[in-house]
Computed example of a mutant assay.
Amino acid sequence: MITNEALERVRGWFSGRLPQDWQTEPADISIDRDEIVVTLHLPDVEPGQTEAETEGARAGRASAFREDTREQRIAIAREAQHRYERTVSWGVRIGEHEELYTHLASPTMTRLRQPQRQVLDTLVDAGVARSRADALAWCVRLVAQHEDDWLAELREAMTHVADVRTKGPTA
Rank of each mutant, 00 (worst) to 15 (best):
N4A: 15
H103I: 00
E46S: 13
T54V: 09
E67F: 02
H41W: 06
L100E: 15
G127T: 08
E79C: 06
V119F: 07
G48R: 08
L151M: 11
S131I: 04
Q114I: 09
D134G: 02
Q23D: 10
R73M: 01
A57P: 11
I94A: 02
K167D: 07
V88N: 03
A144Y: 12
V38I: 09
G12R: 03
V10A: 12
T24S: 14
Y101I: 02
I76Q: 07
R17V: 08
L18V: 12
D34G: 02
T39F: 05
Q49Y: 12
G48Q: 09
A157R: 13
P169R: 06
E71R: 12
R141V: 00
H41Q: 11
A75I: 04
Q20R: 05
A59K: 04
E55C: 11
T69L: 02
A129P: 01
E25R: 15
I74S: 13
W22E: 04
T39S: 10
M109K: 12
D163N: 10
P107D: 08
A80N: 05
I76T: 09
I36Y: 01
L142T: 09
L42H: 07
T122L: 13
E147V: 05
Y84A: 07
E71T: 05
T69Q: 13
T69F: 02
A62S: 14
T50D: 11
A75H: 10
Y84N: 07
